[in-house]
Amino acid sequence: DIIVVALYDYEAIHHEDLSFQKGDQMVVLEESGEWWKARSLATRKEGYIPSNYVARVDS
């Protein structure tokens, strides 16, 4: 799995977006363009995230 960590807070604009806080970790489910589908490890919610707001966690 690709794990990313939030670099900034993000408040969902559309209902399919995923809100998150700086430091939150998410599993990337699908990478396509600038918006990635991800699942929050904390809340288990899924939605689209702006890929420029996150960084990959080296395992």
Rank of each mutant, 00 (worst) to 15 (best):
S59D: 11
G23E: 03
K45Y: 07
D17Q: 15
D9N: 10
P50L: 07
S40R: 07
K22L: 06
W36N: 03
E46I: 12
V54K: 01
S59I: 13
I2D: 08
Q25L: 15
N52E: 10
A12E: 03
D9G: 07
S32L: 13
H14I: 05
K22H: 05
K45R: 11
E11A: 11
I13W: 09
Y10D: 00
M26Y: 02
V28Q: 01
D9Y: 04
Q21P: 02
F20E: 00
G47W: 03
E11D: 11
E11C: 13
K45F: 07
Y10A: 01
R56H: 09
S19R: 05
E16P: 04
D24S: 05
L7W: 03
T43Y: 04
S19M: 04
V4S: 02
W36M: 13
A55R: 13
Q25I: 15
L41I: 11
D58L: 11
E16W: 15
S51G: 08
E34F: 15
A38W: 02
E46H: 06
A42C: 11
I13Q: 13
S51P: 11
R39I: 10
G23R: 02
D1V: 14
L29R: 04
P50T: 03
E34S: 13
A6V: 02
V5G: 01
P50V: 02
I3T: 06
V5P: 00
K45S: 08
V57P: 07
I49P: 01
Y48T: 06
A55C: 12
E31R: 14
S59L: 12
Y10E: 00
E16L: 12
D1H: 14
L7G: 01
Q25T: 12
R39M: 11
S51V: 08
S40P: 03
S40A: 09
E16R: 14
W35R: 14
S32G: 14
R56Q: 08
A55K: 13
A6F: 02
A12F: 02
N52M: 10
I49D: 01
H14L: 07
F20N: 00
H14M: 08
P50F: 07
I2W: 10
K37Q: 07
I49S: 00
R56V: 11
A6M: 04
E30A: 09
Y10S: 02
S32R: 14
S51Y: 10
L29F: 08
R39T: 05
I2C: 12
V54D: 00
V27F: 08
T43Q: 05
S32E: 11
H14A: 09
